[in-house]
């Protein structure tokens, strides 16, 4: 264990006490998990019949289609959100008030409105047609605004020497932003960007509220089918596992990038990354 602020390195007496706590902790944990498993088993959730649905080819293809719909909304949403974020980050950093103030207003606006309400506005209010468009539009605007904040914080955290040097070699404002500042900001903010993308991936599940046939929509549908014995618990477990796997994969990818970045040494050491915490917390 790495040294913690709160606790001293334990002595022999403390170690004994910790062992006791550990034993109690394990007992409580095992009892808790055991209880849940027991109750589910008692209500027949682990019976073969409740899992039979997973064997049918049509169900599998339906689930794969649904998974693809989730991934599709994520990919399109992620790309558009990045573009939106980059444009509005640049806008927020503009020297002209005419550009800066509207850009800030837009970002604040879409950060403040709940994604559910945004998606409802696009689907029921404006009527974009297929649910896919409303989902992607909502994901883009909300996550794009958060990403704009991330990029902005990233650019601001770069040493001023970077832009000064760029101006000194005769670059224009646009060139400084696109060639020097944004690329470095993106690198520096990679972890924050990826954790926002995890949020985007999870939020794509909201599409089920407007009948976008993604993973959760199909889970809800399959879970209600009487012929399969309404396998709500099994399907929740399966779908949760898929989501967790996808998100962990993304997070792992983020860590991998970060590690590679550190090795390449092209990234500047930044003193504080306040935005990273902010974003990690913004769900």
């Amino acid at each position: 264990m790495s040294a913690s602020v709160l606790f001293d390195i334990p002595g022999p007496k403390a170690r004994m006490r910790y062992r006791l706590y550990a034993a109690i902790g394990i007992a409580v944990l095992v009892a808790g998990i055991g209880f849940v498993v027991y109750r589910f088993a008692a209500s027949g959730q682990f019976d073969a019949a409740k899992w039979e649905w997973l064997q049918y080819k049509n169900v599998q293809t339906t689930l794969l289609d649904a998974l693809w719909n989730t991934v599709r909304a994520f990919l399109v949403g992620a790309v558009l959100a990045m573009v939106f974020g980059a444009i509005f980050a640049a806008g927020q950093l503009s020297d002209h008030k005419v550009v800066r103030v509207p850009a800030m207003a837009v970002v604040e606006l879409f950060r403040a409105v709940p994604l559910v309400v945004l998606i409802f506005i696009f689907h029921y209010g404006i009527g974009l047609g297929a649910p896919f468009y409303s989902v992607v539009a909502g994901l883009t605007l909300y996550n794009g605004s958060v990403l704009a904040e991330v990029f902005r914080a990233g650019v601001l955290s770069l040493p001023r020497g970077q832009s000064e040097a760029a101006y000194a070699v005769g670059m224009r404002k646009t060139q400084v932003m696109t060639l020097v500042l944004l690329p470095q900001a993106v690198r520096a903010m990679m972890p924050a960007i990826i954790s926002q993308l995890v949020v985007l991936l999870k939020d794509s599940a909201l599409g089920f509220l407007i009948t976008y046939e993604e993973l959760l929509y199909q889970a809800r549908y399959l879970g209600g089918i009487f012929e399969f014995g309404r396998p709500l618990v099994p399907i929740t477990i399966v779908v949760a596992a898929i989501y967790i796997a996808m998100c962990l994969l993304l997070t792992w990818f983020a860590n991998y990038l970060e590690k590679r970045n550190r090795r390449s040494k092209k990234v500047l050491e930044l003193e504080a990354k306040p935005a990273e915490d902010v974003v990690a917390a913004a769900v």
Binding site: F7, A22, T236, V239
Partner: peptide, 26 residues
């Protein structure tokens, strides 16, 4: 998660990993 007892840390990590990576709707 910052406690000196490993099993407590593991339980905290497990909880956070599961809940953070599951959509709220789920």
């Amino acid at each position: 998660r910052v406690s000196p007892v490993p099993i407590f840390r593991a339980a905290g990590t497990l909880y956070v990993t599961i809940l953070r990576n599951t959509p709220l709707t789920l």
